[in-house]
């Protein structure tokens, strides 16, 4: 049930001198929602997150996190949020156990050593932060962010540098938190992760909000192109330029000829008949709907604007 607004951003702006990092954006995130915050570098994600976390005052608009004004009530905010910072954030010589004790003490809760065990840090509890791998450091940061069970959690690139097993465990933990009603803001460059985990995503570009919707709705409102990848034994399609119906764009990637079609049936039928007519043999044919990444690149013009 996602009815109670946990994060409210209304006409929020953030400026650094003459540079406007965030320009009049508004969105609402509800209880128990995983909300993806996407955008190329410099889009305004960090400024938005830092203002919501109480690290920077807004230059315009209204921010509320669990009903708290982050800039005006930092004392109340600290137990309402958990933040997994993108990098560092801990003294080099602190051990995982010490960090858990220290942060939980400041939040006034008992240390959650079980979280360290669950996130694969059982053998590393007495290892100093500087001795942990990047993935282990990120897992420790996540454990510290959720140890005091805040209603709102900010995760900044949570799976960067993690191996597959750790990613699976982290995603499992995120789903568990969601089921408990925790609101999660997920800032990531991993589009597959955002698409798989987020209930809704917001895409920022040059400080402005391009879209806020479910991943499915965002991909459905794109140019409507379907990706068709074909691999044949004699590689006829790679060596001969053919025009197929309803194809807007085509390219070659490794042993696959890739077509972007507005009509799957027409294109696939024409492809198969051409392959048979030329005496080639179909080895693989894949039809994929546009991913969030495709749509993101489309919206942000390649992610560079």
């Amino acid at each position: 049930m996602m009815s109670e607004a946990m994060i409210e951003v209304k006409n929020f702006s953030k400026r650094y001198g003459a540079f406007t990092a965030v320009d009049d954006i508004s969105f609402t995130v509800y209880r128990g929602e995983i909300f993806g915050l996407l955008g190329p570098n410099g889009a305004g994600k960090t400024s938005t997150l830092e203002s919501l976390e109480g690290l920077r005052p807004p230059d315009g608009g209204v921010l509320r996190v669990a009903g708290i004004d982050p800039a005006a009530e930092p004392g109340k905010l600290r137990n309402a949020i958990g933040v997994q910072l993108q990098s560092g954030g801990l003294p080099a010589s602190i051990t995982a156990d010490e960090a858990m004790k220290l942060f939980c003490a400041y939040h006034g809760v008992a240390p959650r050593f079980d979280l360290l065990d669950r996130l694969g840090l059982k053998e590393k509890r007495n290892v100093e932060f500087q001795g942990l791998s990047t993935g282990q450091q990120r897992r420790l940061a996540l454990a510290l962010a959720v140890a005091h069970e805040p209603p709102v959690v900010f995760l900044d690139e949570p799976t960067a540098g993690l191996d597959v097993a750790s990613r699976v465990e982290l995603h499992s933990l995120m789903r568990e938190l969601k089921e408990k009603g925790t609101t999660i803001i997920l800032a990531t460059h991993d589009m597959a992760e955002a698409e798989a985990m987020s209930d809704r995503v917001a895409i920022l570009l040059q400080g402005r909000l391009v879209t806020v919707d479910t991943p499915l709705a965002i991909t459905a409102t794109g140019a409507g192109l379907t990706k068709i990848s074909v691999n044949t034994r004699a590689a006829f399609l790679l060596n001969n330029h053919h025009t197929f119906p309803a194809v807007n764009q085509q390219l070659v990637k490794e042993e696959y000829a890739i077509y972007f079609s507005t009509n799957i049936g027409q294109t696939v039928a024409a492809l198969i008949s051409t392959i048979e007519a030329e005496g080639d043999e179909l080895l693989d044919l894949r039809v994929e709907r546009p991913s969030l990444e495709d749509r993101f690149l489309e919206l942000t013009n390649g992610g560079t604007q």
């Binding site: 690290l55 600290r78 949020i81 933040v83 560092g88 801990l90 003294p91 400041y106």
Partner: peptide, 9 residues
């Protein structure tokens, strides 16, 4: 580290 400390009170 101070930013992390600030967030955690």
């Amino acid at each position: 580290i101070f930013r992390s400390y600030k967030i955690n009170g």
